[in-house]
């Protein structure tokens, strides 16, 4: 009966994962391996193709967009225009990239667009967290703490399937941006993605599927060692159950990968350093880029994080 309960939990979290995350691993890998035929992503590899990429997006309907979803975020922080994700605004943000625009501004605006998508992704992760049995029964302050400390780790894991050694899918899989192009941006923008590529290429060799990912993400959210938690015991109890479910899932789904569970536990530790470095880089950006506006939701999450 216990194993049956753990399997039921795995199925529940997998359904929630499919419901709340718009682009999961299976379709992503199909896009990256060129199995989507006519729907191949537009490739951005230099400034010219960056501008063409915007045109490409403006000509296509953005998938997975629901007005209801975007309105939650806009209402949440005073309706800043940058959080709108509708096709009227395009993937890059509020206006078109003009040929005369200084390169500095291009990088900054691209960064702002990444922030918009990240904020939307935080909302998706929040909904997923709320679907974890017992999560919404936790002290509300602890729910906030778990999300504050867990959400960037979750986003990095969700980003991994979008990446390969040569680049990353963005804009819901409609664009492939090359790693070399990202490395060619001016400092410190060029330093932002490289650590994520290094992590993701290794993480992808573990070959988790979407049902494994759902359980792993839930484990990342339910960590009893986040700073400032008020009531650790119920969180640890929840995490223990999800960890057992993950262990069983991996045994059944990857019978030949004997150390997979242990490797995933190690990845949980590795992620903390990547997040720390990321937050420090954002703090550096805030100091050096006078025109930069950090999204209010991301600001909340990163303030006093590490």
């Amino acid at each position: 009966p216990e194993a049956a309960d753990l399997r039921a939990l795995a199925r529940h979290l997998f359904r929630a994962y499919l419901k709340y995350f718009p682009l999961t691993k299976q379709p992503t890998r199909a896009i990256l391996s060129g199995k989507t035929g006519d729907n191949a992503p537009c490739v951005i590899h230099d400034m010219k193709s960056l501008m063409e990429g915007e045109q490409f997006i403006n000509c296509r309907q953005m998938p997975f967009q629901e007005q209801q979803q975007t309105s939650v975020l806009t209402a949440a922080h005073g309706g800043l225009t940058e959080v709108h994700m509708g096709s009227d605004y395009g993937v890059w943000g509020m206006t078109s990239i003009s040929g005369q625009e200084p390169q500095n501004a291009v990088e900054l605006r691209f960064f702002q667009s990444c922030q918009s998508r990240s904020a939307e992704a935080v909302r998706e992760v929040t909904e997923f967290a709320k679907s974890i049995p017992g999560f919404t029964d936790l002290d509300l302050n602890d729910q906030v703490t778990l999300l504050k400390y867990g959400v960037i780790e979750v986003l990095i894991i969700m980003m991994s399937p979008l990446m390969n050694k040569d680049g990353t899918l963005i804009s819901y899989g409609q664009i492939f941006m090359t790693r070399e192009f990202l490395k060619s941006l001016r400092k410190p923008f060029c330093q932002m993605m490289e650590p994520k590529f290094e992590f993701s290429v290794k993480f992808n060799t573990l070959e988790l599927d979407d049902s494994d990912m759902a359980l792993f993400l839930a484990c990342l959210i339910l960590r009893g060692d986040r700073p400032g938690l008020l009531n650790v015991k119920p969180i640890e109890k929840l995490q223990e159950t999800v960890l057992h479910s993950l262990e069983l899932q991996l045994k059944l789904n990857h019978p030949d990968s004997l150390q997979l569970f242990a490797k995933l536990l190690q990845k949980m530790t590795d992620l903390r350093q990547i997040v720390t470095d990321h937050v420090h880089l954002i703090q550096l950006l805030k100091k050096t880029e006078v025109d930069m506006c950090l999204h209010p939701l991301l600001q909340e999450i990163m303030k006093d994080l590490y």
Binding site: Y20, V72, L73, V122, T126, K130, V144, L147, K148, E300
Partner: peptide
């Protein structure tokens, strides 16, 4: 903590996307 994280708090409390799996 809730005061310092108003948007996160609101996302946690909002009921526009009920978990109706």
């Amino acid at each position: 903590l809730k005061e310092k994280h108003k948007i996160l708090h609101q996302l946690l409390q909002n009921s526009t996307s009920p978990v109706d799996l």
